[in-house]
């Protein structure tokens, strides 16, 4: 519908620009405030989809397998990822247990699931429908609250604190989570929000 389609406004300073395709691998910045507006990578949706699928499976593995174990003075204790969350479950800290479970497991899972739903039609060259748009909107909204990578740094700090006192064993879930963090950093550099929305928009007419 006319010239409005060719305009793009900077999300940080509202400055209008003419939309134009960006060369492969390049970024378009706002002329006024310098915020990144577009990043272009031809194959990126297919890579995003495969990364999201792998991350999803890694997260399932991280929940299912043993996470960490400790041993000291003949006594040992092990925990799963959800067991870590339940550390907060005694009486007054229960809301915190629920929040932490959401931050490190359920929000990342929901976000990955939504992302998979949203980009699948783009990869398969099907016509996107409103479901796919809603899924991408959800994935975008959850992004700041998906904290699996922060949790991994927290685990590293915790381990340094206790390695002097106890011996630590690493379970499969630990490695799955470490892999997941690498994949999610990679994935975040590949997603261009605006390009995905534009691609999802072809359904309209």
């Amino acid at each position: 519908m006319g010239p409005l389609e060719d305009l793009i406004a900077c999300p940080h300073c509202d400055t209008l620009h003419n939309y134009s395709d960006v060369p492969e691998g390049a970024q378009a910045h706002c002329r006024k405030c310098g915020a990144v507006m577009l990043t272009q990578r031809a194959a990126s949706v297919a890579i995003v989809l495969s990364l999201a699928l792998s991350s999803f499976l890694l997260m399932i593995a991280a929940i299912s397998f043993p996470f960490l174990g400790v041993e000291a003075g003949g006594l040992s204790n092990g925990t799963s990822l959800l067991g870590t969350v339940m550390a907060f479950s005694d009486d007054y800290a229960l809301p915190l247990a629920i929040a932490v479970a959401a931050f490190i497991v359920f929000i990342p899972l929901t976000r990955l699931g939504a992302l998979i739903v949203a980009v699948t039609p783009l990869v398969l060259d099907r016509t996107p429908r409103s479901l796919h748009k809603r899924a991408f909107g959800l994935a975008e909204q959850l992004r700041p609250w998906s904290m699996a990578e922060i949790f991994v740094v927290g685990v590293a700090v915790a381990l340094v604190k206790i390695t002097a006192l106890v011996s630590v064993t690493y379970g499969l879930a630990f490695w799955a989570l470490a892999g997941l963090v690498v994949l999610s950093f990679w994935q975040d550099t590949l997603i261009c929000r605006y390009t995905v929305w534009r691609a999802l928009d072809t359904s309209r007419d």
Binding site: T84, F88, G154, A158, I162, V166
Partner: peptide, 16 residues
């Protein structure tokens, strides 16, 4: 949020 996760991991693991 790092510190919260540190506490969670410590409290879950160190129950000897």
């Amino acid at each position: 949020m790092i510190d919260i996760f540190v506490v969670a991991v410590l409290a879950a693991l160190v129950q000897l």
